[in-house]
Design a protein around this nucleic acid. Structure first.
Lengths: 197, 197
DNA sequence: CGACATTTATGAATATTATTCAAATAAATT
DNA sequence: AATTTATTTGAATAATATTCATAAATGTCG
């Protein structure tokens, strides 16, 4: 019987990293949370860094998959961007631990991992620029904005807002409401013709 | 003679954290870089976390000061935002180590420091929302965007782009050029009347 | 099934690095 | 210049990441 220990360790790590932060999280805690011995962790991962990287790379796969599938439903580039933003927020709401990891801890790793440059992350961001390019090609979006920059603007905004949301205890403001406003500003900023939302 | 050891330690820490990342940076390395004994570090800081927090809190003071002074030069809210973005980029260019720390490592700390919530950071972001509110009051900017959200959108975009820039070896794209495009999109997104840039 | 081989898991042992602290040095005071 | 006080040192200690010899589980084949 194929063991699910690796899977359990990843789940436990998401929880512990999100709660304690990467630096303070103990490998022992993660192992205990997963119900295995400390040493077992090292049968599945090279080291603490590798646990974080693995979470990221492996969790990104279904996220990207789902996002692409959803966006395929919409034909218009504007509609695609709207769908992206809403789904992004929905994921943040439903999966705060994971969101926090992606946003907070990952940055840390992409720095020190010295050479590690996530393909998955690029693939995710490219969903935005692809929709934008489509919009430019069909004459809906401005030509004088670089797709690479636009994807960073939009992702940066989403990232910042969801990070704030996950860190704030109160969660008083709704992410869906924020989604509306971001779209409000960014779409107005890139659409050629002004249409009502 | 008042010793400058604390100052030297902070400078050394910026360099080492930026290079090695917070997790992998050794206190011993920082001490050596600063030319003091390892133990001396603990006379000036409580622990490794405290070094990071101190860098942030103390370096933010002149940054905020300078930013406020520069923005005071301009009367129009639009001009203030333009000035903010350009200075932000200029700082990132001139001080990549510090920029990296603020963007990458700080997130980490703001999470695990469990309760630590930087006042300085809020003060910095509020420079944006203040300019925006002024624009709303004078009828230049849209009323239907929350200032708190707008500051996060703009800061998030700037943060993302400068992060990418500091992490990329090549530095092939210019931050000033990116500044133009961000302003292009965001200003068009929030201005009531469409005027040329 | 039951002996042997192979894979997987354990947790105590080891290595690394954060933090402390007794002793030494430097500075200030009288 | 002797004494007190403040600062600095680096070796000692503590915490935690990682390894590894041993044990347990699983698979193989007569």
């Amino acid at each position: 019987m194929r063991s699910d220990k690796r899977e359990r360790l990843l789940k436990a790590a998401v929880k512990v990293f999100a709660r304690d932060g990467f630096f303070h999280a103990k490998v022992e805690t993660i192992a205990k949370e997963a119900g295995v011995a400390t040493g077992t962790t090292y049968l599945y991962f090279d080291n603490k860094d590798d646990i974080l990287i693995s979470i990221f790379e492996e969790e990104m796969i279904p996220i990207i998959e789902g996002m692409k599938k959803e966006l395929a439903v919409y034909k218009g580039p504007k509609e695609k961007l709207i769908a992206f933003v809403h789904r992004f927020m929905k994921m943040a709401e439903e999966n705060p631990d994971m969101t926090q990891l992606l946003e907070i801890e990952l940055r840390q790793s992409s720095k020190f991992m010295h050479g590690y440059k996530s393909t998955k992350f690029k693939e995710y961001l490219d969903i935005i620029s692809d929709a934008f390019v489509l919009g430019q090609e069909t004459g809906v979006f401005r030509q004088d904005v670089q797709p690479t920059l636009l994807k960073q603007i939009l992702f940066g905004a989403l990232d910042q807002i969801t990070m704030n949301w996950t860190l704030s205890k109160s969660k008083k403001f709704s992410l869906q409401q924020s989604a509306e406003q971001i779209l409000n500003v960014v779409l107005k900023g890139i659409l050629i013709k002004d249409t009502e939302q």
